[in-house]
Design a protein around this nucleic acid. Sequence first.
DNA 1: CGGTACGTTGAGTCATATCAACCATAGTGG
DNA 2: CCACTATGGTTGATATGACTCAACGTACCG
Lengths: 233, 233
Amino acid sequence: MPDSFENIQCESCLTRTQNLFRHLTDSEIHQIALNKITQFYKRGSILYQENSHIKGFYCVQKGIIKIFKTGFDGKQQIIRFAKPGDIIGYRSVLSNEMACSSSQVLENCIVCKVPSDILVNLVKHNGNFALELLKLSCKELGEANTFLTDIAQKSARERLAEIILFLQNEFGSDVNGVLKLILTREELANIVGTATESVIRLLSEFKTEKLIELNGRKIKILDAPGLKLLANI
Amino acid sequence: MPDSFENIQCESCLTRTQNLFRHLTDSEIHQIALNKITQFYKRGSILYQENSHIKGFYCVQKGIIKIFKTGFDGKQQIIRFAKPGDIIGYRSVLSNEMACSSSQVLENCIVCKVPSDILVNLVKHNGNFALELLKLSCKELGEANTFLTDIAQKSARERLAEIILFLQNEFGSDVNGVLKLILTREELANIVGTATESVIRLLSEFKTEKLIELNGRKIKILDAPGLKLLANI
DNA sequence: CGGTACGTTGAGTCATATCAACCATAGTGG
DNA sequence: CCACTATGGTTGATATGACTCAACGTACCG
């Protein structure tokens, strides 16, 4: 559940300078600033649920969110992550459909919620913004297709190696090479698309092969080239 | 390789009335009409290749096209199909990147190729068109995510059943219930994401279970509800 | 201090991939 | 016209990756 939170100034927001929002005029920014709500969500809270109706999109200021679909037997499949600067929920807003995925906080978040009609109006009246948003959705589409091919063709072993490298690339690692994003084994399994036990076994194999080091949920990359080789990238 | 083909009149084109293009003004349609090239491609020909540069998008008038990615070991993964009224290649045009998939003709095609800058201009200057295109890409994104979850979580058996129903839904069946779209076993395997031999075995199991009937490449659906049950949809 | 969630390991099973052989068909060239 | 080749389809035997189930360990939290 979100806590109310003092509204962040859109004018000085970090996402202001990023691709998507950089073409907005001052008055358009002001329009968003007037209508948005800034909220705080802590780890574990759900921003929106699959099959629910979303009344706006979320702009992530801080924190990390996982976006996932729930399969037939209740197992989650993590589709992607959102981090500061990313927006989520825009798909459902634009297509005016129920959400086709759920989103849950992995690291405490501050998000700004912007009403649907503002997004639609921006698309209609600011061509450059529309183009940027299209680029964004096309980028996601390309990533989804690549991921799809990986899951269909690669082994769990290859995928896990790939995911570990992806997590480093996406969320970074500290000075010791330890991945910054902390995930449970189950969450890892829900990205890779395999069983939790399989992830555990594979991780310990990677450890034996001196590719990684494990310390609880912390994963330290010892041999990135080795992982890359294993992942076939 | 495409054959040249007498240009189709955009003004009376079937796609003119469909969602994507219905908001275009007469002069915008005229602009497309002046710059497009109509081409004929026969079964097996490639419209564009992964990692090549595309100079425009394709609007399908007639025929069926498969869009696929080529995996590490050369195996194709079919991502989606395009049929009359669909457009392909717009992703690469908008993101201005190399194509991330290839497209090959399954049933003889007539397509209109429209230069990139026309698409970009339409997005920039016609808000309603931009919105429709966004809806389209978001729809594809949603489908890709669903497909992803299916491949990650369902068995090959479930997926094959689902794909058979999808093919009926998407391309129809004749009066006898025979699927109109004819695919090789390998192509089926490349959608389902499994080995060709597995598809063959599963199809013959479905036949034994009186779910379908087989006649060469022709698949006749005998028990759609049974397939639906099996596919968990 | 007990409870809950997560992690680990082992054993057994099953679905699916792989490899190999063979058949059917159609198109090709001498 | 026929051998030749390529492509696709089928089947069987075998291997194995990955799942499931079950038991147990660990750690944190109220």
